[in-house]
Amino acid sequence: MPQSDIETDWFARIANDDEQAFRQVFDHYWPQVYGTSLHLTKNPEQAKDLSQEIFIRLWENRSKLGDVKTPASYLYILSKNLVLDHLRKKVFDPSNIDFLIQYFQVTTQTPQEKLELNELKAVMEQAVNSLTGKVKDVFALSRQQGLTHEQIAARLSISVVSSKTYVVRALQQIRKYMETHAGDRLVIAALAVLSLR
């Protein structure tokens, strides 16, 4: 029996709750799944954790596996999507968004770094420009002009608590914008920037 037929048979058996077939799939595909995770995360421990999560998801969704014709492709797509989803959540955490904004205001990058990160910076600027009203005003005064919350409160006739709340809201909105507008390559670029922290 050709290897592709064997793998398809494994998936069909897993769909019928066959744990032995699942073990065979795990042993056979672990190098591929781990390799994909490691390639995207550059972190062996994180890649191991994510690879285990991928196989857990495979087992949890086993009822759908009977219709899969190309198991290797199915697992690659599952691995890539789960890892990139994990990276998006990590990269676009509000504290990381703040760091990225500050990073792009620094002018000590080399020409090569500027070229590689130009697209990411453009999406970041679009995200900031998408802010409106007081959220945009407070964010600009805080992150672009460097004013304290006390100074912002005095200038805009709002409370210090309101100033802090607007900044938190701005970071959340920027994160959501980045999550929907930054492609996979930009997520990896952002992760590279964050590794400099």
Score class of each variant (00 low, 15 high):
residue 5 D to C: 04
residue 9 D to K: 00
residue 10 W to K: 01
residue 10 W to T: 02
residue 13 R to W: 00
residue 16 N to P: 08
residue 16 N to T: 01
residue 17 D to A: 08
residue 22 F to L: 15
residue 24 Q to N: 13
residue 25 V to Q: 06
residue 28 H to L: 07
residue 29 Y to N: 09
residue 30 W to K: 05
residue 33 V to Y: 00
residue 34 Y to R: 10
residue 34 Y to H: 14
residue 36 T to L: 02
residue 39 H to N: 06
residue 43 N to C: 15
residue 44 P to Y: 07
residue 48 K to T: 09
residue 49 D to E: 13
residue 50 L to E: 07
residue 51 S to R: 04
residue 51 S to M: 03
residue 51 S to L: 01
residue 51 S to W: 13
residue 53 E to T: 10
residue 54 I to K: 15
residue 58 L to T: 07
residue 61 N to R: 04
residue 67 D to W: 11
residue 68 V to W: 15
residue 73 S to W: 12
residue 75 L to A: 09
residue 77 I to M: 04
residue 78 L to Y: 09
residue 79 S to Q: 00
residue 79 S to V: 00
residue 80 K to A: 05
residue 81 N to W: 10
residue 83 V to A: 08
residue 85 D to P: 01
residue 90 K to V: 15
residue 91 V to G: 10
residue 91 V to T: 05
residue 92 F to V: 08
residue 93 D to I: 05
residue 93 D to P: 06
residue 95 S to G: 15
residue 97 I to S: 10
residue 97 I to N: 14
residue 98 D to I: 06
residue 101 I to G: 04
residue 101 I to T: 12
residue 102 Q to D: 15
residue 105 Q to L: 07
residue 106 V to S: 09
residue 108 T to W: 12
residue 111 P to V: 00
residue 115 L to A: 13
residue 118 N to L: 10
residue 120 L to T: 09
residue 122 A to C: 12
residue 128 V to K: 03
residue 131 L to A: 05
residue 135 V to N: 14
residue 138 V to I: 07
residue 138 V to F: 05
residue 140 A to Q: 11
residue 143 R to T: 05
residue 146 G to F: 00
residue 146 G to L: 00
residue 148 T to E: 02
residue 148 T to Y: 04
residue 149 H to G: 11
residue 151 Q to A: 15
residue 153 A to Q: 08
residue 153 A to F: 00
residue 154 A to V: 11
residue 155 R to Y: 09
residue 157 S to Q: 15
residue 158 I to N: 00
residue 160 V to C: 03
residue 165 T to K: 03
residue 167 V to C: 13
residue 167 V to E: 13
residue 167 V to P: 09
residue 169 R to H: 14
residue 173 Q to F: 12
residue 175 R to P: 06
residue 176 K to T: 11
residue 176 K to Y: 04
residue 178 M to V: 09
residue 179 E to V: 00
residue 180 T to H: 10
residue 182 A to Q: 02
residue 183 G to Y: 05
residue 186 L to E: 01
residue 187 V to L: 03
residue 188 I to Q: 00
residue 189 A to M: 02
residue 190 A to G: 14
residue 191 L to T: 14
residue 193 V to I: 04
residue 194 L to Y: 12
residue 195 S to N: 04
residue 197 R to F: 10
